[in-house]
């Protein structure tokens, strides 16, 4: 009998690119500082999360990247999230950027990201550790 999908939680990111990923977009950090999206560093996210009373940075390691059944414009990225290595899959546009620790913006198709958003971007690969958020009180 065909097996059911593994018990992962799945989050579908809206099928449009949010405006804040466009090069030059102004981002406000938790301490009020304003930075352009392309100038953000790993420390900006970490420090903002430390200030936040609700949000916590988690390390999400890319475990698998595959094409979506929905559309060739989409990819399914499977992450191992946090210390418990919970499996989470997200379906995103191939140009959707993720922030990789110590590296910066990366996407499944960096050429398209750069073309559409002008956001400097590298190729997202299996083993990359991305920044993600969870609630501090989520256990």
């Amino acid at each position: 009998a065909p097996s059911a999908p593994p018990p992962t939680s799945s989050t579908v990111v809206p099928p449009s690119l949010p405006p804040y990923f466009i090069k030059g977009s102004i981002i406000q950090l938790a301490d009020g500082e304003l930075k352009r999206v392309e100038d953000l560093k790993t420390e900006d996210f970490i420090q903002s999360a430390e200030i936040s009373s609700e949000l916590k940075i988690d390390s999400s390691t890319v475990e698998r990247i595959e094409g979506s059944h929905t559309s060739p414009n989409f990819a399914v990225v499977q992450f191992s999230v946090g210390e418990h290595r919970a499996q989470v899959s997200v379906e995103v546009l191939v140009e959707y950027p993720f922030f990789v620790f110590g590296q910066g913006w990366s996407s499944c198709c960096p050429d398209r990201t750069t073309q559409l958003l002008e956001l400097p971007c590298t190729k997202l690969s299996v083993g990359d550790v991305c920044i993600s958020l969870t609630l501090k009180n989520l256990r």
């Binding site: 989050t11 102004i26 304003l34 999400s60 919970a86 997200v90 922030f99 993600s132």
Partner: peptide, 25 residues
Amino acid sequence: NVEPRSVPVFPWHSLVPFLAPTQSD
């Protein structure tokens, strides 16, 4: 320098995917 009045300003957490694993215990 950044001029906040003429452009929209987005909160930092908008940029980060919210990956909240479901706990099954």
